[in-house]
Design a protein around this nucleic acid. Structure first.
Lengths: 107, 107
DNA sequence: TTGACATGCAGGTATTTGCCTGCATATAAG
DNA sequence: CTTATATGCAGGCAAATACCTGCATGTCAA
């Protein structure tokens, strides 16, 4: 699977985003530590972390029997640069607004 | 399903990103037009477009029997503001580099 | 009105996902 | 050495996904 696929898929799950948030608040936590705040088994959390690792959002550092998880923000910056930066605010929003006027709001 | 879930899920598929790219290059295309460049049936493309619409990335405008698709970049800006902006460049990359030194490169 | 065109709607199926249980392995501590 | 701790590995299962086929509906144009 290619790079942006892995990245967006990794971000598409609330449990995984929660893991990223926890690492953002307190980086370098072990698997067991990360498990304590999610209502699922250790094995499920492992699977989520594996996905985050595959997306290069989390890097692993072994210390003895402990597996420390470190957050890597670089791919997120790349997402911005390659996918979001080109959508500058004013440009296409005008079309959306135009639609609102032509059709009435169907939201 | 909540907002960021829909957004990231919509972006997690290469066909859907390709559709967004095509709309970025040439906005307001019909379903048939969008089908011509993807190697799948019209119904599959419809499903992808439905997902993009659910994520509010695409807005639809009916003109007679034609369904025009308009790109809406606002959710992408929100993604940046709510998820990416807080990961400023220098901060945590240092930890990733530290790991490289401690473990050797396992990439 | 009739025929062509644009799209919708209703399934059917193979694959992927997300979660689980059960057991195995490796490290730390007494 | 023995026990507790931290994690890995294998497999199973229900739900979601991403395709498809077949048929129905609505709109334009002659």
């Amino acid at each position: 699977m290619n790079k942006p696929d892995l990245l967006f898929k990794a971000l598409a799950d609330p449990s995984r985003r929660k893991l990223l948030d926890r690492l953002y608040a307190n980086d370098g936590q072990t698997l067991s530590q990360l498990c304590t705040h999610l209502d699922m088994t250790r094995q499920s959390v492992t699977q989520h972390l594996d996905l985050l690792e595959a997306a290069n959002l989390v890097t692993v550092l072994w210390r003895g029997r402990e597996k420390l998880h470190l957050l890597n923000p670089v791919p997120l910056q790349e997402v911005y640069e390659r996918w979001l930066a080109k959508f500058e605010k004013p440009r296409l929003k005008a079309l959306h607004d135009l639609k609102q006027r032509l059709e009435g709001d169907d939201t």
